[in-house]
Design a protein around this nucleic acid. Structure first.
Lengths: 168, 168
DNA sequence: ATTTAAGGTCAGCCATGTTGACTTAATTAT
DNA sequence: ATAATTAAGTCAACATGGCTGACCTTAAAT
């Protein structure tokens, strides 16, 4: 019996299975970022710019502090990429009227176009994977990856509207 | 009706769902790498070292070329981190007897210990997620993430032994 | 009036990716 | 046997994007 554990208790997780998870995540992330990287290079941007563009697009009027909480990088690191994105007119900022210390970040039209180009490649990748595997697998994927994320940040990944069922 | 498409055709994937996938992958990867990064810092290593240690541990006697194919970085980039790992006695190399141009890489005992320490944190994360979600979700996770990986590399993620079923 | 919070800035350091040009040694093909 | 290819390594230079630390301004909260 090379692997007693798995034969005794199906709830005991085999190292093999856990390592498979680690590797899937590595390879998936590696390939998932490759296409956007190529597009970004045309503009002289990098992956850090992409993350900012993505999350500003996803959260219009987001503040710098909130963006930092998502990215988990320092203010100084963010400032570099955010600065170039504002300067190059991909992102605009305006003061929050209710607290003028806050700056609300939004994609410009130009920024929105780039966001769409970048996100389209990644959505296509997911669309194919989802189609090939089906709704049940997608739900499993969603639940497992949620479990990988630190609990305090799970709520960030919001299915923003529940899908309508049938009818239209 | 704000979202006609999803009501008409359940096979039409909503942008919302696709973006959720993108975000899950981002957050999961972010948190999944944080603990190892902290351990590596104690040794003066970074994430790049981790990847090398992981895949050499996973593929004893791997060649440099094969390692490059997994990591998809340049030989020069690899050389830097691999060089320090060999110098610090975490990895050993020996010539392949059947083709002495090839160098076979293996973890030393010291390297194996670090590999285990690093991988344990990531396995614990997966173990919890797997336990919380169940076998069906895990299978869905596995299939979806496989679909995200470029086809030519899917075979790399091998479930090396099929689990025994019941009995012990 | 003081303290705190949000945001920004300058300077410098480090890790890790890149290109490009070359070298050496071993194997394979002609 | 010679030539070509392959595996590995090396040196130099550069870019990106993290980091720390010190410090400033403005606005809000106490």
């Amino acid at each position: 019996m090379a692997d007693l554990k798995s034969n005794i208790n199906p709830l005991f997780l085999r190292e093999e299975d856990l390592r498979q998870g680690i590797e899937l995540l590595f390879y998936a992330y590696r390939d998932f970022t490759a296409e956007p990287d190529a597009i970004l290079a045309k503009w002289g941007f990098g992956r850090a710019h992409h993350r900012v563009i993505y999350f500003v697009g996803r959260n219009p009027n987001i503040t710098v502090t909130e963006l930092l909480a998502i990215l988990k990088i320092t203010k100084q690191s963010l400032s570099r990429v955010l600065g170039t994105l504002i300067e190059d007119d991909f992102i605009s900022q305006r003061a929050d009227p209710s607290d003028r210390r806050r700056k609300l970040l939004t994609l410009t039209e130009k920024g929105g176009e780039l966001e769409r180009e970048l996100t389209t490649t990644q959505m296509a990748r997911f669309a194919r994977a989802y189609r090939e595997t089906g709704a049940e697998a997608v739900e499993g994927f969603r639940r497992v990856l949620s479990g990988i994320i630190n609990p305090e940040d799970r709520a960030r990944v919001r299915p923003r509207q529940k899908p309508g069922r049938g009818r239209g």
